[in-house]
Computed example of a mutant assay.
Amino acid sequence: MITATALGLCALGTGACVTSAAYKNKIESQHPPIGAAVPVNGETVHVIQEGEAGPPVLMIHGASANAREFTWTLSPRLRDEHRIFMADRPGHGYSDRPDGAHDLGVQAEQMAGVLDTLAPGEKAVLVGHSFGGAVALRVALDRPELVKGLVLLAPVTHDWGGGGQAWYNSLAAPPVIGPMFSQLPPIVGPGQLAGGITSVFDPAPAPDAYSEKSAIGLLFRPRNFRANARDVKALEDQLAEQSKRYGELDLPITVFSGSGDTVISPKLHVGELKKQVPVDLVILPHEGHMPHHGEGGAVADAIRRLASE
């Protein structure tokens, strides 16, 4: 996403900060918040809500994304019969980022707080994509009284033995160099976006105007980029501990996994999850890491089924 040449831009100092500030203003004017700021634990969570009646469904996005990921994929299939809550994870989209938000437990607290506020006393179906799958699992572990079932989409569930980390996350995450380095993505990142989108959808084709519809450009704002990097860098250690608890889960879980997924290894994630807890696994031979796009109808059907049980 970011070339080595771009590191030379650090020398621009103030110039890079001015450019990133201009980018932030521009991208936020193109993609302003379209949901509500829900107070949770002294911070706010930006939640896009659709549907006025029916069982609640909370959708949690993955890394490098935001809640708009679901506004044109899954919500239109479900909003006539469910209340859909699409939440920006801490530090993503337009949600505040509490201290320690790289911890899956903190992320789960914020997502659970959305349900406490918007669907008090009810159980919801949780939908989690990729990193959001890890957060959905943690909500089910820490607040099982809130969760009726899980629908996980190409979920990250276990530590994977190291490696596979993008180098720029190592520079954006640390406390000293990170804030400075994170001024560079607004300059370089957008030009590298098309290739990244192709890779996450492969072998399926990327939908037309995916970046615009999902407001992916919000990622390159410095604070958002840094929050994403800190989440991703901490994830493996977090999952090494969290995965020890999966045997506690006592609820229906459906997983959609693209057999062509090159972002994560289904064998190392859902394959390991299946050893610990019963899973209704749907293998999609022509999909990659974004199964809710090409197979949105099947995913919506699974959500309806768990909501009605």
Rank of each mutant, 00 (worst) to 15 (best):
R77N: 04
I84M: 15
Q183D: 00
P175R: 10
T157F: 11
G132A: 04
L118W: 05
G164F: 06
S170I: 00
M86P: 03
L171W: 03
G178V: 00
G189Y: 06
L146K: 15
M180G: 11
V127A: 08
D142R: 15
D116R: 15
A124G: 12
A134M: 12
E81L: 00
N169Q: 12
A134S: 15
N169Y: 15
V156F: 08
G132W: 01
L137N: 11
P90E: 01
L104F: 06
Y94F: 15
P120W: 05
F85V: 10
P90T: 05
H158V: 06
L150N: 11
P186F: 13
A172F: 04
H82V: 11
P76N: 01
T117K: 15
R97T: 00
P120G: 03
L146N: 06
F85E: 07
R89E: 02
L153A: 10
G128D: 07
A112S: 14
V106C: 05
R89D: 02
D80I: 11
T73H: 10
R138L: 12
E145H: 14
T117V: 11
Y94M: 10
P120A: 04
G105Y: 09
L74R: 09
Y168F: 15
G162L: 08
L126P: 03
S170Y: 11
P155Y: 11
P120D: 04
R77S: 04
E122G: 02
L152K: 08
H158R: 09
F181D: 08
T157L: 14
V127R: 05
P185I: 10
E109V: 13
A154F: 01
G163M: 06
L126E: 01
R89A: 13
R83D: 00
T73I: 14
A119H: 02
D88Y: 13
H158N: 13
G121F: 08
G178H: 00
L146I: 04
L153D: 03
L78F: 12
A140S: 09
N169I: 08
D116T: 11
D142T: 13
R79I: 09
V147C: 03
P144W: 14
D99N: 14
I187C: 02
R89W: 00
P120C: 05
D96I: 00
S130V: 11
S95Q: 06
H82N: 13
G149S: 02
A140W: 06
Q165K: 07
